[in-house]
């Protein structure tokens, strides 16, 4: 099964989604480095406060975190839908157990989404160490960035071990990329149009973004993934809401996949 799925993934689609991510991160690096090259590093800037996920003075992070579902689901999320339409799945069903097939497709979707987001973010984070000195962020020097408890998860860890905090933030974001990819894989069983099925999780995030304006949680904590996945989010965050939304969305997508297996594949 694993060997088959390795052959099945289209290599060109991986390149497309990696190209979007690396282009966005390259634009962000260029834009934030130009003033430092011009005037020198007067304000003691370090990689920890300049990289893609924490930069508040730039437009690119908004676009990047809104497009995470699209980038995660391009590589391997819609191959289940394509195989179901072409009838290749019926051929596979004779040789391998159906539970194994659905699990394999789900895991490939997850790993494809996880890896694309992980590679783009970690290249952006590590390439900043080539240009800027490794200075620990300080609460008084970097006061203008407003990295406080209300908008950052585990803010104590950020000032103590900024590298560990950055790596944990990257891991959370890439796990969410995997969840979005599984969600696309599950929703694609229920949607007729192939192109809309690929974009279903992106549309889902837009719907959550619009709902966040009407139904506000206590302390105005945001439940949009594009907001709380950033290391320092533009709105308020809460650790309980982050964990709750993560579990809720992953359970919903797994349920949709299992119900879709019973209703749409076996009938």
């Amino acid at each position: 099964m694993i060997n088959y799925l390795k052959f099945r993934i289209i290599k060109r689609s991986i390149i497309i989604s990696l190209a979007i991510g690396s282009l966005l991160s390259a634009i962000q690096i260029l834009q934030s480095l130009i003033p430092i090259i011009k005037y020198g590093n007067i304000f003691l800037e370090s990689p920890y406060i300049k990289w893609l996920s924490i930069d508040p003075f730039n437009f690119v992070p908004i676009v990047f975190f809104m497009l995470i579902p699209l980038m995660a689901s391009i590589p391997s999320a819609n191959i289940l839908k394509e195989d179901l339409d072409s009838g290749l799945l019926l051929h596979l069903k004779n040789k391998v157990n159906l539970n194994k097939i659905v699990l394999g497709y789900g895991l490939t979707a997850f790993s494809g989404g996880f890896l694309t987001i992980f590679i783009t973010l970690i290249t952006n984070f590590l390439s900043y160490f080539l240009f800027l000195p490794n200075i620990k962020p300080d609460f008084l020097i970097n006061e203008n960035l407003l990295i406080i408890q209300e908008n950052t998860l585990f803010v104590g860890l950020f000032y103590q071990h900024p590298f560990v905090h950055g790596i944990l933030s990257i891991l959370l974001t890439s796990i969410w990329g995997g969840i979005f990819a599984v969600m696309t894989c599950a929703l694609s069983l229920w949607i007729k149009e192939k192109f809309l099925a690929l974009l279903s999780s992106t549309v889902f995030q837009i719907i959550i973004l619009l709902l966040n304006m009407f139904f506000k949680l206590p302390n105005l904590a945001s439940y949009v993934p594009a907001d709380f996945l950033r290391e320092t989010s533009p709105s308020a965050t809460d650790i309980k809401i982050v964990i709750g939304i993560t579990i809720l969305i992953s359970v919903i997508s797994i349920l949709l996949l299992t119900i879709g297996r019973n209703k749409k594949i076996v009938w």
């Binding site: 149009e193 809309l196 549309v203 837009i206 619009l210």
Partner: peptide, 18 residues
């Protein structure tokens, strides 16, 4: 912001849908 990510984004998806 809402027009960029809401209305125009949606209309771009709709025109390619079918």
């Amino acid at each position: 912001f809402i027009l960029c990510f809401g209305l125009i984004f949606i209309s771009l998806i709709v025109s390619l849908n079918t």
